[in-house]
Structures are given as C-alpha cells and as structure tokens.
C-alpha cells in the first residue's frame, strides 16, 4: 500500500495539487458571481482524485479546506469531509468512472433510484412521530407507499428525466458523485450541528429551517439538509470533472 501511495505523489501530482486548490477557490467564487444555487467548490479536488488517485485526492481536499480556513475559519473543521471527497473521487477514477461513457439508460436508472430514495427519506422524516418517552418511530414503507403513491411515481419520473437530460452519458460518474455526496452529508453533519449550531450562512440553511419546522432535531435536520443538497452538488462536481477529463487534449493524456 505504501508503494502505491508513493507512486501517486510524483512531481507532477505535487505541482497539480496547488493548481487544483486554486481551481476550487476560483470556481467557488465564480459560482457565487453567477448566482448558481450550488457550491461546486471541490471540482479541483475531484480532478486530482480522478487524475492522480485517491491519496492525492484526499490530501488535496484536506489541505484545500485548511488553507481556505486561513480566510474563512468555517472551512477548516470540515477538512476531513473534503479529504473524503477526494478519496472517493480517486476510487471512482480507478474504476474508470471519469474515462468511460455510460449508456443513457444507466443514467436514467441512476437518476430514478436516487430521487426515489431521497423522496422516501424525506417523507419518512416528515412523518416520523416522537412519543412522550422521546422515542422516535418512523412509518413503515408500506404505509408511505400507499399514502404517497403519486409522489413516488413523480419522483421516479423526475429522477429518470434528470438522468436522461443532465447525466447524459456520464451516469457512472454521476452515481459516484451521488454516493460521495451521501457520505459527505453523513460525516459533516455532527461537526455542522455541534460546532456551528447547524448553519452555514448559505442558502441551504433554508432547508435546515424546513426540516426543523417539520419537527426534526438539530443534528437530524442538518443531516437531512446535507442529504438533499450534498449528493446533488457532488453529482454535478463529478459530472463536470468527467467533462473535463474527456476534454483533455491528447498532449496531456498521452503522458
């Protein structure tokens, strides 16, 4: 394993990492300038994972947040989340997620499964009830299906459309992005909830508010917010990197 790690850190990788971190920051600011409702501030990190491997990706993510923390201390405590994103991108890259095209039907399935699961998750959350002893019970799947059948069908259709039109031929990369987003949401929630009272000062705080309104605790609401916005954000980041890798000139890839 140590041999592999060493192999990832060639001089080229070392040079690539600061460029990737600068890309994270520049694109993160561009997104704000274009008023897009996403972050997309880990594209450089994902790119290093895709090109150089998981360990290089993890190092890029971790350092990116620590350096960013010199200006916005909010970013620093989440360095381990950024590292996990880089690691996942590297694993995806090893399995060819960024190099290959997938048939469009795969993208349709990925999109449909994701939006379906998200709907299930949110409905279960909204319909959870807490009794006097503080024990929270969730409705059964059967109950939810019979109650919200229309919502589920709509979710599958919307998901399929997202897959077909947005993921297009990058379904596999998009899927890795979704999985990465779910992991990022789960591991960042405790820090967000306990250190920062559950807010980020960004637009996604509205989602936290919505989940709090439906009766969720602080940790649960932060987790729920993360599970809605992070997978979508990371899916787009992975898709963009997929596009970048495919646009790389032969001059770069032949090395």
């Amino acid at each position: 394993m140590f041999e592999n790690i060493k192999k990832e850190f060639s001089t080229r990788t070392l040079v690539l990492i600061p460029i990737a971190i600068a890309i994270n920051i520049a694109i993160g600011e561009l997104v704000v300038r274009l008023k897009l409702p996403v972050y997309l501030d880990s594209i450089g990190t994902v790119l290093v994972g895709a090109i150089a491997g998981p360990w290089a990706g993890a190092l890029t993510g971790g350092l990116a947040n620590l350096i960013w923390g010199l200006f916005n201390p909010f970013a620093a405590p989440f360095f381990y989340v950024a590292a996990a994103i880089g690691l996942m991108a590297g694993l995806a890259g090893k399995r060819g997620a960024f190099q290959n095209e997938t048939p469009r039907w795969v993208s349709v399935v990925v999109g449909a499964v994701f939006v379906f699961s998200l709907t299930l998750f949110i409905l279960a959350f909204i319909n959870a009830s807490t009794d006097e002893t503080g024990y929270t019970s969730y409705p059964s799947m059967g109950q939810l299906f019979s109650q919200y059948i229309v919502a589920f069908i709509a979710a599958i259709l919307i998901g399929a459309a997202i897959g077909y039109f947005l993921l297009q031929k990058g379904g596999y990369a998009g899927m890795w992005g979704l999985i990465t987003g779910v992991i990022a949401a789960i591991i960042s929630a405790p820090t967000a909830a306990y250190v920062f009272g559950g807010v980020t000062g960004a637009g996604t705080d509205l989602l936290v508010a919505a989940f709090r309104a439906s009766g969720g605790g602080i940790l649960a609401s932060v987790l729920a917010q993360g599970s809605v916005s992070d997978p979508f954000d990371k899916m787009l980041s992975f898709m963009v990197v997929w596009l970048i890798v495919r646009s790389l000139p032969a001059r770069f890839t032949s090395r």
């Binding site: 080229r12 040079v15 690539l16 460029i19 561009l30 897009l36 596009l243 646009s247 790389l248 001059r251």
Partner: peptide, 20 residues
C-alpha cells in the same frame, strides 16, 4: 458555467508539466 471553467482548468493543466 462550462464555457467559463473549462478554459480555466484546461489552461492551468497545460502548465503542470512546465512547473514540474
């Protein structure tokens, strides 16, 4: 978004070899 970020990323990747 894409027409703006691609020149940024591709252009800087071209510098990698020189810097190395």
């Amino acid at each position: 978004f894409i027409p703006i970020i691609l020149p940024l990323v591709l252009g800087s990747l071209m510098e990698v070899e020189e810097r190395a």
